[in-house]
Amino acid sequence: MTETNRKQKLKSALLAAFPNTLPVLAGFLFLGMAYGVLMQTKGYGPLWSVLMSMVAFCGSMQYVAITLLTVAFNPIQAFLLSIMVNARHLFYGLSMLEKYKGLGKVRFFLIYTLCDETFSISSSVEPPENIDRKYFYLAISFLDYFYWVFGTLMGGLLGGLISFSTKGLDFVLTALFIVLFLEQMKKKENRMSGLIGIVATAAALFLFGAENLVIPAMLIILLILLAGRKKLCT
């Protein structure tokens, strides 16, 4: 493949992927900025918040980590907590094994940046027919990653300068998950699994509370899906 050909393919993939990432653009700029501002208030300037966003790239865990950066130095605790908070990624990987197959070098970046939002989009949206599959997934992953890092930078630099009321804007990511859930529900064979996800997580929330729901929810989902394999395998 020639260089111009590759650039052309990448460009059309970016254009095709961009509309899919618009909700993430809004959500990540907002939450990334909020993160940069919060880090700033704890004495960690844009250099540190951006470094964290670029290297760790794990939204909710980064918020948890703000507290860890203001208490006694304990990297082992941070490491273990990070595994627990991010355990849901294990299931994203299992879901993307087939889609991320045969993508060469970009695969490393795709896995490195496989966050909730990128997983939601890339597992729900099929690449358009005339678009290179590899570049389509790369574009979605790159755009989401860029929004988060850029938002963090803006938050770190501008601090509390933003004056218009953004209260409630973070709901855009909830809305993204709801709509992608509805998209998945269009397929009949997905409905039982989607219902299991809702009910199992609600049960885990009820039984284990808001702070510790993810791992129990994952286990309940896994058990039901495995037990119902024969029925769901249609």
Partner: peptide, 8 residues
């Protein structure tokens, strides 16, 4: 898993 995780 994808629909279930979206529900989660």
């Amino acid at each position: 898993l994808p629909p279930a995780m979206m529900g989660l």
